[in-house]
């Protein structure tokens, strides 16, 4: 079977490949480094070891941070999605003045630098008497991740075939019914894509969370930053390896359920 004519030249393809390898470099490296025997990088590598995984899971502060991060993500993700669904629906199917402006406002957290959001929330939470900590983190991250979810759902809704909703209306369904029985079931790709982005951001965010953590309540990202600064061994690499594997499995499962192409077209 002979290859057909390709519209791009060899050099284009090489550039694309180089870009992909560049992207994979740190991830693959950190994954392998997590299994390195020695505490410092050496070439050739000293040997294979799981000690850093023990170090990570054995570290009290990291364990605590892990529970906090998971807890935050477990609350923020469904909360964000729950809020984003009616929001996206109103934005796409509603007809009222100021819709464009409102859309801009809802998307604004994405434009505002994370640091600014973090500081603003720190001041705000202190002013409210709540102060930094778990609640502050949940509130700030929900606000910050909402645009991700809304954007994914809006894109999903733009792609829906109007005939289905029209047919339902024709048959006498109320707006609520149409939403529940016709629109919602079709939102699976958007929910999965939006949910993924929200979840990843909730676990991984640094620029906002660094302002809202306390001695007792830290997240994995803040904790690992502190660890990198103070120590210098591959414990963080072990954490990275675990997170990467976990996320890849998550995406693969969702890719099976919905189809990776669809998920990323939604973005």
């Amino acid at each position: 079977m002979r290859a057909d004519f390709t519209i791009y030249s060899r050099s284009f393809f090489m550039l694309a490949l180089l870009a992909a390898l560049f992207l994979l470099l740190p991830v693959v490296f950190i994954f392998l480094y997590a299994f390195h025997t020695g505490a410092y990088f050496s070439l050739p590598p000293e040997g294979f070891s799981l000690r850093w995984f023990y170090s990570f899971f054995g570290n009290e502060r990291f364990r605590q941070a892990m529970w906090v991060s998971i807890g935050i993500a477990a609350i923020v993700t469904p909360l964000s999605l729950l809020i984003s669904v009616p929001t996206a629906y109103s934005l796409v199917r509603g007809q009222f003045r100021g819709r464009e402006l409102l859309n801009l406002f809802i998307m604004s957290p994405l434009i505002i630098p994370g640091v600014v959001t973090g500081i603003a929330f720190l001041i705000f939470m202190s002013a409210l008497g709540i102060g930094p900590g778990f609640i502050a983190l949940v509130l700030a991250l929900t606000c910050f991740t909402l645009p991700f979810a809304v954007r994914a759902l809006v894109a999903n809704m733009h792609g829906l075939r109007p005939e289905l909703e029209e047919a339902a209306r024709n048959l006498g369904a109320s707006e609520a019914s149409v939403f529940r029985h016709v629109v919602l079931p079709q939102l699976r790709p958007g929910l999965l894509a939006g949910g993924t982005f929200v979840f990843v951001e909730a676990i991984d965010n640094f620029s906002i969370t660094v302002f809202l953590t306390t001695m007792d309540v830290t997240t994995l990202s803040v904790e690992s930053y502190g660890y990198i600064r103070d120590f210098d061994d591959p414990t963080v690499a072990a954490m990275a390896a675990v997170l990467v594997v976990f996320s890849v499995i998550l995406v693969l499962i969702m890719g099976r359920v919905v189809g990776l192409d669809k998920m990323f077209r939604v973005e």
Binding site: A16, A20, L23, L24, Y33, S224, M239, V248
Partner: peptide, 22 residues
């Protein structure tokens, strides 16, 4: 190529910063 993009998004920022340090 798509995989390399997806993996990058999922690999966290602090961990990538650390990887670059090394």
């Amino acid at each position: 190529l798509m995989l390399s993009l997806v993996v990058t998004f999922l690999s966290g920022t602090v961990t990538r910063a650390y990887a670059w340090l090394i």
